[in-house]
């Protein structure tokens, strides 16, 4: 325990890469996760260079003529954070090879949310991963397009109410499709791919360190509870991140060398209601019409969890 705390203390002593005074909502998961990632990089002696997809984090931290960033930071567009960082990394390799730059501390980090990662940016991300650029891609997954007001994405889970998967008089379900398993997709590139939660910060930090040590691409999918889109009290952000792990809705696992490992196995697996209840986007599940959907969410969650355990056991 003492060791854990000393690392946490050190993290807190870093000069912040992301300054206070930004415009993110109170209780937003973005700034919590970003500070964990960047402070870990700094603590490890790295000098991060960051690319940021269009989204909440970007608009709330880079509003001309101000900037919240104490590190080199670039925002290009919505779908190309990975392509942008791949260009920066290529320039780094070129200038280093040509003797115009001498700095082996630089690391490249790209941030996007699920919209810019699972959906519109998937091609650019896959391309950059296949090409083998050395970068860590962090997806802050808030399970919908939150910057434009909570529209469904391919990360939105089954049975979720969003502004484009509405629940109404004749539709008790909300989103009818299952979420895309992005970690599997990224793992299939033969790279390090992991899923983390800000509630389990030691696990998250370990994964960040591992990702930054790769001599190539690495992918980290982090649950990012969204107070406004999900509809809960800002004080509960980390609580919901934790419940997502404890209900096995958000399994903490990693894929390394094409083999998977489940990093956190809750001793007392909670029913999904424990996580879903209290979020406005799931209020429809706690009505008589929502019962079936709720049961299906439990079933999908159990199936996925069992699959991960079985696969790990089988050595893959």
């Amino acid at each position: 325990m003492a060791k854990k705390l000393s690392f946490l203390n050190k993290l807190a002593l870093n000069k912040e890469s992301l300054e206070g005074g930004h415009r993110l909502c109170p209780g937003c998961g973005h700034s919590i996760i970003i500070r964990m990632v960047l402070n870990t990089a700094l603590q490890e002696g790295y000098q991060p260079v960051m690319s940021n997809a269009t989204g909440c984090l970007e608009v709330c931290t880079g509003l001309y003529p101000y900037s919240s960033w104490n590190i080199p930071w670039i925002h290009n567009a919505f779908e190309n954070a990975a392509a942008t960082i791949s260009g920066a990394e290529a320039m780094y390799r070129s200038l280093s090879r040509r003797g115009k730059l001498d700095n082996d501390k630089i690391v490249f980090i790209a941030f996007g949310s699920d919209g810019g990662t699972y959906d519109i940016g998937l091609q650019a991300l896959s391309g950059a991963a296949e090409r083998g650029h050395r970068f860590l891609y962090v997806c802050d997954d808030n399970e919908a397009y939150q910057n434009t007001g909570n529209q469904r994405s391919s990360a939105t889970p089954y049975g979720t109410r969003t502004t484009t998967s509405a629940v109404g008089a004749i539709d008790p379900i909300g989103k009818k499709q299952k979420r895309k398993e992005i970690v599997e997709i990224m793992g299939a590139h033969g790279i390090y791919a992991a899923q983390a939660s800000p509630s389990h910060w030691m696990d998250l930090i370990k994964k960040v360190k591992k990702g930054l040590k790769q001599n190539g691409p690495a992918y980290l999918n982090v649950i990012q509870p969204c107070t406004t889109g999900w509809g809960y009290d800002p004080k509960d952000t980390i609580n919901y991140a934790k419940l997502a792990v404890e209900t096995c809705i958000w399994p903490l696992y990693e894929i390394e060398n094409r083999r998977s490992k489940v990093n956190v196995k809750p001793k007392n697996k909670l029913p999904v209601e424990a996580y879903l209840k209290g979020q406005k986007r799931y209020a429809h599940l706690f009505t008589p019409q929502g019962k079936e959907t709720l049961e299906r969410i439990q079933k999908l969650t159990d199936e996925r969890w069992e699959f991960l355990l079985e696969r790990e056991k089988a050595g893959f």
Binding site: T84, S86, A88, R97, Q123, A124
Partner: peptide, 28 residues
């Protein structure tokens, strides 16, 4: 020639990578 050649998966990524590379201080 000794250029770093980024063989992107689309023209969108070509120009996006060019932006990242050019902002990183070299000829692109």
């Amino acid at each position: 020639m000794t250029t770093e050649f980024v063989t992107v998966e689309s023209e969108h990524s070509a120009i996006s990578a060019c932006v990242g590379a050019s902002a990183s201080g070299g000829r692109v």
